[in-house]
Design a protein around this nucleic acid. Structure first.
Lengths: 242, 242
DNA sequence: GAGTGGTCTAGACCACGAG
DNA sequence: TCGTGGTCTAGACCACTCA
């Protein structure tokens, strides 16, 4: 499909990738140190690091500073289902994905005021949700809700739980999807290379009165997540578009 | 928002970015050569190239081998509107974005058979659509249609036109969105750095009989395109999900 | 403190683009 | 041909992890 890549490090990456797929390097294994690998392949360290960077970008290798390069446990691809979600279903339909939610109060500023259509400095509640698959971080969501719509009894701080069912009846969900590289702090909290593309979903949910009840910023690493949007076209809907 | 980045090349990138936004470097300008810039900032060439790589990833700079680094003309962000489209509207709602369509015949293989739900080697028509904004390539779409659904009079070869209205009544449009880095040939045809994330949309459209009438693979560079999906939640729809 | 990755250097050599 | 970017080297120095 793609023509043969001519660079040294592509060849090295191919070799390592092959060793992983064949099983000579198993999930969880530590690779030899970069200096060892470099001398083994007769290249300099920067060249070897390029090869590793490629594998990182593919999600096959996880680099841990001071400790080594490790073969990643294969990550199941999870699918984010668009179109909002009903009361009990979490945004990511995944069973063994447990989520750590950190709730905190803040005031609207900058981008958020426009998203939520509120005035600056109006009180909000932020839910910072980091979901894990096993021990490795999987995805990051930041959900903002006007304070008066958040459950009053919810304490600030860390809660290990599913996001509570705080969904009022929704009328309209608009999701803006874009692809970009992670910000430095996303890269570190998700423990991904900064060269891995992430799928960035901004979801704005509006209730029947037209009020924005939620804005969510989701960061889904591209090597482990897709999003699916399904649209049913009825004849009435087609007419309405015209 | 993001804490100050400590590396040398981040600082250099910040400086250059600033010069661009301030207007000291204007769109179309050629930057000084990498060696000149390197000596100006008192860093080595690889370090400087990191800085440029970052700007490339942001779509601010275009590198042309053998000729130099250029400040990109600012690209308007275009939005892909999800949910399929009605007869006359192109997938990208953009006026001055003109599209070159290359039609060709081929037979289903691999991935495509599953997407279109057809048997292997069944005849298909491929529309390879490359849209340009001015002189620079903007996005790439590959659309596959079962041969018998394509207009019979359509010749193979290059057509500079909008995609013809060949939409049968659609019942269901499913769009799978993912983020990844471009394949080498995507990077070259779109003239983007291979470090720029692209938004990859796989759209499968089904007609009222359940037959797949179209599969489209869209590659939208992350620095210039978003996708928007809107879902109207009626009470019936919510009931249906349960 | 030993070993790991992270960053950076100074310079070599090759490949491409334009005159 | 000349100037440009593309790749690579050999090695220095710093920062982090873990025993």
């Amino acid at each position: 499909m793609t023509q043969p890549a001519p660079t040294r490090w592509h060849a090295i990456a191919d070799d390592l990738r092959n060793q992983i797929s064949v099983g000579r390097l198993k999930a969880g294994d530590r690779l030899p140190s970069e200096t060892q690998l470099a001398s083994h392949y007769r290249v300099s360290t920067p060249t070897l690091r390029n090869a590793l960077a490629l594998l990182q970008g593919e999600g096959l290798v996880e680099k841990i500073h001071g400790s080594g390069n490790f073969v990643r446990h294969p990550l199941r691809r999870t699918t984010y289902v668009g179109g909002g979600y009903t009361s009990s279903a979490p945004p990511l339909v995944e069973e063994d994905l447990h989520t750590t939610v950190h709730a905190s109060n803040l005031r609207a500023h900058g981008h958020l005021t426009a998203l939520l259509n509120v005035s600056p400095r109006s009180p909000l509640m932020e839910f910072r949700c980091l979901s894990h698959q096993g021990k490795t971080p999987h995805s990051l969501a930041r959900i903002y809700v006007p304070r008066d719509l958040a459950p009053a009894d919810l304490p600030e701080g860390l809660l290990v739980a599913r996001l509570p069912d705080l969904r009022p009846p929704l009328a309209l969900v608009q999701e803006t999807v874009s692809a970009r590289l992670p910000t430095p702090d996303e890269a570190t909290t998700l423990r991904i290379s900064s060269a891995l593309a992430i799928l960035c979903i901004t979801r704005v949910a509006t209730d029947t009165t037209g009020r924005v009840v939620e804005a969510a910023l989701l960061a889904l690493p591209g090597d482990r997540a897709d999003a699916v949007f399904t649209t049913h076209h009825t004849t009435e809907a087609r007419k309405a578009e015209a």
